[in-house]
């Protein structure tokens, strides 16, 4: 990782009010869900980082916090050295230009009444880029997402494009302002396998040629592995492991990561069908276990795990993990 991080997240938390049950009302209790509960990580320039985890682990909320789409309950996000929460007016506008979101569902991401050209021109207009540059910028973005035939695509409307073409246009829109950071939440989950491969290859190319950093958020570890240099694993609002992707996949340290890696089916008949090293279900996010949040599902839990919250610390080979066993 570079000495000057592009993105520096420290002790970030986001708590949402949870629906009150009858018992809560009787006790005057206002329950909260700690969707993100004290996470820290950095992303260096040109670094591609994936956040992986199951529903409710806080990965989507993390992405929204990073882009300042929701305010944090606590903690700080520094982008290029500046606290994102402090940004106003022109500085905020510049941040919006430099940190771009790729929408999950390409079928909803574009205004159905705008042609591809108008969809791509919109961010250029919003950011006040000189009009004579528009056509060249649009052409460049389309070329980068491998839709170089402008005559064929620019005057089309979203309903006239296939899912794969739409997602390419969505990606073109995200990179047209030459952002420094791309945040994509489940960027291919709506696409069929054969089309998905093309988008994943584009994301890899973006990493290798455009010089931007990216935060990819997905439940799919195989996808994260394909495009990300580094992988962060989240469980119930916390980071449990953070390391070089191949290390995390090949030699998972945290017991939760081990279960997650073991659970991913592979497209070959010869594969392990051994019982997963995990018990029970994800607990109620309103009342997570004391100490380590994974302890009630962990096959190796010890008394210490209930008493002490394990910190995320260096366990060697550039891997951080939060587990008393390591």
């Amino acid at each position: 990782m570079s000495a000057v991080p592009l993105l520096d997240v420290t002790d970030l938390a986001k708590h949402f009010p949870a629906p009150r049950r009858l018992a809560d009302i009787a006790r005057g209790h206002r329950p909260t869900v700690k969707a993100v509960d004290g996470i820290s990580f950095r992303i260096g320039p040109r670094e591609t980082v994936g956040i992986v985890g199951e529903s409710g682990c806080g990965k989507t909320t993390t992405g929204r916090l990073v882009l300042r789409l929701v305010p944090p309950t606590a903690g700080h996000i520094r982008f290029e050295g500046v606290d994102v929460a402090s940004l106003r007016d022109d500085a905020l506008k510049a941040f919006r230009r430099r940190a771009q979101l790729v929408f999950q569902n390409p079928f909803d991401a574009l205004n159905p009444r705008l042609s591809v050209r108008d969809s791509l021109a919109e961010p250029l207009r919003n950011q006040g880029l000189p009009r004579p540059e528009w056509d060249a910028r649009i052409a460049l973005a389309m070329q980068r997402v491998r839709l170089p035939d402008l005559a064929r695509y620019l005057d089309r409307f979203p309903h006239e494009l296939s899912g794969g073409q739409l997602q390419r246009v969505v990606l073109a829109r995200a990179i047209i302002l030459e952002p420094h950071l791309l945040v994509a939440d489940e960027p291919v989950s709506m696409l069929d396998v054969s089309v998905r491969a093309g988008i994943l290859n584009l994301m890899r190319e973006a990493r290798d040629t455009l010089g931007l950093a990216a935060l990819y958020i997905s439940h799919d570890l195989a996808l994260i592995r394909y495009v990300c240099d580094r992988t962060i694993v989240m469980y119930l609002g916390r980071i449990v492991e953070d390391g070089p992707t191949e290390e995390v996949v090949r030699n998972p340290r945290h017991p939760y990561t081990r279960a997650l890696v073991a659970a991913v089916p592979v497209p070959r008949v010869a594969q392990s069908r051994a019982p997963l090293p995990i018990r029970g279900n994800v607990p109620d996010a309103r009342e997570p276990p004391s100490g380590c949040r994974f302890r009630d599902r962990c096959p190796q839990a010890m008394p210490r795990c209930a008493a002490e919250d394990p910190p995320l610390r260096d366990v060697g080979n550039r891997v951080l993990a939060a587990c008393h066993l390591l």
Binding site: S162, G163, G164, V193, S194, V195, R196, A197, G198, L200, N201, L221, A222, L223, R225, Y226, E246, V249, V261, V264, V266, P267, R268, Q271
Partner: peptide
């Protein structure tokens, strides 16, 4: 095409092969 377009977590990180068109 389908098998080559599919990522394999346990195998080498081979390049995925998309099927063009729809």
């Amino acid at each position: 095409g389908l098998t080559n377009a599919f990522p394999d977590l346990a195998g080498a990180a081979h390049t995925l092969v998309p099927i063009a068109g729809h």
